[in-house]
Write a protein that binds this DNA or RNA. Structure first.
Lengths: 187, 187, 187, 187
DNA sequence: AATGAATGAGCGTTCATTCAT
DNA sequence: CATGAATGAACGCTCATTCAT
């Protein structure tokens, strides 16, 4: 196993655990047990748990962006691609791994003074918002820039609500309702 | 100090700490230090930290419902009272104590298997949703029940998004944008 | 066992270990094993290993000052009491617990930036020097203050050399030689 | 870089670190980082940290003996050369690298059972004492052998005290006072 | 001859909880 | 009814050392 493989394996195990159990409730010991490595090995790849946390967030974000991009771009050109953003949530919610939004959950666990992780989360969410805006610009080129920006923000807010609330309630009506609203404002 | 006073004092201190620092990052020791009591005294009032957690959530919820009710009912009858729900957020966001939604943050910190606390959170959010629905029924009696229910859900989702996202980004545009959307769908 | 007893017992075990094995080479685990207590118990008495270190130094210093005072004051008035300071070393060296000067050894183990412990050590050595000076003032009242101060410093330096070098070489000639020098300058 | 160069470079970096930070507080990782080599490379040159410790002591001792010899022999023949031994300390103390006596500090960090390193330190100190004695024999040939030996030991003890105590107190009066004593007994 | 990756054992510290008084 | 003292288990992290390449 190469160094890169080991690193990747650590990130994957940590990703699973951090997302399912929560960051603070997951001990380094569990991560290494799952990854089948020694503690010092982990610390030769990541200088601290926080460092691993950043890698975890990056890993999730990249995988997420890739999947949602693919999903949206697979839809017919036009409003359908925007609407797809929230449609994307249903299969995610239905999967047994669904446990809400990793960003919102991580923010909830962070001490107020942790700037580094918070900064990364904000950057990622800003990236997601930028992706939505780009999608709108590409699919609704006739809208005025100001309207495009507004629609992007609204889509984003509805998406976030749908994830967080379907998770909190353990029901998927927030996804349906957000979807309906989005469809209405996309006309 | 009566037994009731002691209990109340514990809850208040815990409330402050759990909300500001996070539940898992707040130790029992900090709570008793702030409350000025002995450890065993705390455990004579609450059988576990989880028990205190439930009391904390109840305390927050009651205070919140009281305040938002008062705020909304202080507005002129009609759509204005519905819109007030999200307007309520701006001063909260501006206050230095603002630290997002305690329910969403608590859900993020819980182990998946903790049913008790999750149940209470769901009950509270359901209560909040019921309050919104009641407000709509009172202020928009002409709407059909189905429409009322839908508007309630949408208002709720926009509210939740506004809190969570203004907290996450440290900016208040999510509040403004949610508010605009709400105004549009309230017409 | 009262709280005071437990604390005292921890200090005594730590004192033994820190002095015999060295501070950095003695783990908290060994201290608690010897003291027969749980780790958290130790940390309820001392907020850190450094805190225990300070208590250890204080413990050693107090016991030392008491013993050397008694030893010196047991000698006939006059130069004999001064000379006794270094004579005191011989039985200490002969005892199987002898392991040099705890202050010099602790200074050697400290990171440069540790001001707190270094300050305590300096204060203790200054206290020891002050004791010597007082002994000289009491026993050699005819000497000029300046000479008294000088003799105190010299006695101190010879004492320190005798401890450190007898320890380093594992031989007691440094004690004998220091003693001879002291006798000569005491005349 | 030849094998010898690598080895020398390791020793030099270790020497700096061990002396400034202390032996136990210096990790192997710091040494290899400073030397710019891989961990396994270090272990191909030195079979253990203890082995490197021995090389470090040798390195310090040789450099020290060379410098002090040169310093003393640069003085006019006679008592001046003996006195120079302690005069040598003042510029050393004034330099920003001064951190006490490496031997005394190393002895303080060793486990009691470490014979090997302790033996080397004793040998070195014996060598230093022998150098002093030789210097006395050369410069005070009229003294009886017994007196020469005694003066050597006294000079040695005063030197050691001066180093250790100026280091401990962070003041140079121990050097001045030792120097004065030495001058008096050199007459 | 030199390396990068891995390790077991141990570090100092904190946690929620219990119990004799 | 309230307390001070104690605890077992787990925490995140670092150490000197080894080995396949």
């Amino acid at each position: 196993m190469t160094k890169r493989d080991t690193r990747q394996s650590i990130i994957e195990q940590a990703s699973e655990l951090f997302y399912q159990k929560g960051y603070n409730l997951t001990g380094i010991n569990e991560v290494i047990a799952e990854a089948g490595i020694a503690k010092a090995t982990l610390y030769s790849h990541f200088k601290s748990k926080e460092d691993l946390c950043l890698a975890y967030l990056e890993h999730r974000h990249e995988a997420f962006m890739e999947k949602i991009k693919e999903f949206c771009e697979g839809k017919p050109k036009g409003a359908k691609q925007i609407i797809a953003i929230i449609e994307f949530l249903q299969p995610f919610y239905d999967s047994k791994e669904f446990n809400g939004c990793w960003c919102i959950r991580m923010v909830a666990e962070l001490p107020k003074e942790n700037k580094k992780v918070k900064a990364m989360i904000r950057k990622q969410k800003a990236g997601f918002l930028a992706f939505i805006q780009q999608l709108i610009e590409d699919n609704m080129p006739d809208k005025k820039p100001k309207e495009q920006k507004q629609l992007a923000r609204r889509t984003y807010l509805l998406y976030e609500s749908a994830v967080a609330e379907s998770h909190l309630h353990g029901e998927d009506w927030p996804i349906h309702e957000s979807l309906k609203m989005l469809k209405e404002i996309c006309q």
